[in-house]
Write a protein that binds this DNA or RNA. Sequence first.
DNA 1: AAGAGAAAAACTCACTTTGAGAACAACTGG
DNA 2: CCAGTTGTTCTCAAAGTGAGTTTTTCTCTT
Lengths: 273, 273
Amino acid sequence: MSGERTPRRDDGERRFLDAYDPGAYAPAAVTVDVVALTIRAGVPHVLLMRRSARPQLGWWALPGGFVRAQDGPDGPADPDLPDAALRVLSEKTPLPTELHLEQLGTYGALDRDPRMRVISVAYVLLAPDLPDPETDADQAAWIPWSALGHGDGGDRGGRAEIDLAFDHARIVADAVERARSKLEYTALATAFLPPEFTITALREVYEAVWGRPLHGANFHRKILATPGFVEDTGRLAERGGPGGGRRARLYRPGGAAFLHPPLLRGAQSSPAG
Amino acid sequence: MSGERTPRRDDGERRFLDAYDPGAYAPAAVTVDVVALTIRAGVPHVLLMRRSARPQLGWWALPGGFVRAQDGPDGPADPDLPDAALRVLSEKTPLPTELHLEQLGTYGALDRDPRMRVISVAYVLLAPDLPDPETDADQAAWIPWSALGHGDGGDRGGRAEIDLAFDHARIVADAVERARSKLEYTALATAFLPPEFTITALREVYEAVWGRPLHGANFHRKILATPGFVEDTGRLAERGGPGGGRRARLYRPGGAAFLHPPLLRGAQSSPAG
DNA sequence: AAGAGAAAAACTCACTTTGAGAACAACTGG
DNA sequence: CCAGTTGTTCTCAAAGTGAGTTTTTCTCTT
């Protein structure tokens, strides 16, 4: 059992905490930045905002803001970092009901913000096609990855057309790589889709994120052979394709979080020779 | 090209920065905690320290400390977070020349430290068998994972004998899971070994971290078939096993960071039937 | 020096998974 | 009804994996 070598909190502890002065340390500003990813018409996009304040006024940047460490005039403290990420993002764009949020990493280089030492905790949000942000008109927009230099799967030679503020280009690059590799080992691709979807729609998510075509028949076989990835609803899509075609079966996400075995991007290749 | 929609820094920017007051935000304390992992005699260990200050005086905890946001009386500012992690750890134990350091995640729940809002950036450090910390005698020690409830590969039913301070048990659990999954997809196992090693030593790393035996012959075949995992030195180990046995070939880490295809823990199974 | 036992490395074989393409089924639009 | 399109199933060769056996080369003992 526990407890023998691990003392419990006692009166001395309580007295210490009452007398503690939280001002006696070198502080830093802590922010959260959110890399919101979605897929629109088969093309992966990231949500960016034009900075409306200095520094780097007018540059494209990730939505973000300061973590509320304590209760204050702006509102109550953020209970945890994911709460801060969702709060900050919801202040800029409406949030979908279904979403996946995960921590990406924390960036804290001395010179990453010219104002002061800023430690930024970055989050990745995956969501089905979201409405255009209605707040602030063209101050926020969904930008295709390709405009940031992440066009193809290997990021080979892609040059960015848009420069981002601070070190946000690096953060977006890390988020894109995170999404690409997570699709290999987890069932996360369904986070980009509505509650019910076809295998073809699922394949198009993989193709969009990885930036290359997959073999439809093999993909189909693999998905159905992976336990817990998808679950058959028993129903069919309303219509076939616009130019004809069989109606596709509808699936919903299965319970599995991880894929065993994984769906490797290095292995599966294009149908075109 | 860039620049058309992205204004460059101008005089207004410079004037803004000169007038900026860094005190006008709600601060939080930022710390780094390091989960140092190594393998001693086939058993994975983590470096823990007994807290010598309140709160939770006397409890086992991860080595850590405050990030130096700016230059101050204690020393110069940490240029980046990894620098802070290495500085903090080197203050408590000698560092090896070869090591792997990667960010694990950031923990910032409101109540994780009773003193104040503390945002902690956790790092994982993998290193070959390190000497015992000589500073402070029994204030720091290498503790086997099993004492923390991470004995077997699946963490099924393992109960911790040692409770950790704050949320450090959770951080260690995340680090252990990170190490276990990284061994599947990367060549990181060599970070636990000296510059030259045998395939058997490499297999023992996997067995220690995953907590289960692997099939030696298949492991051998798989390692040699994975391009860039290891590189033959052409030399042999000094001696065979203590009770006889062929001398093993010596390898060094290959250039590859990722394994294609991966070495899955779910797939490979024990030789005993 | 010879032989028993031990460890590393190579080999065998059945089974599974994968890549590539062909075939079949079910639909749309004319 | 027909041509074209899309979803689904099937086939087959190649590659990879799990399990066990065999061969090689050591150490230790007698």
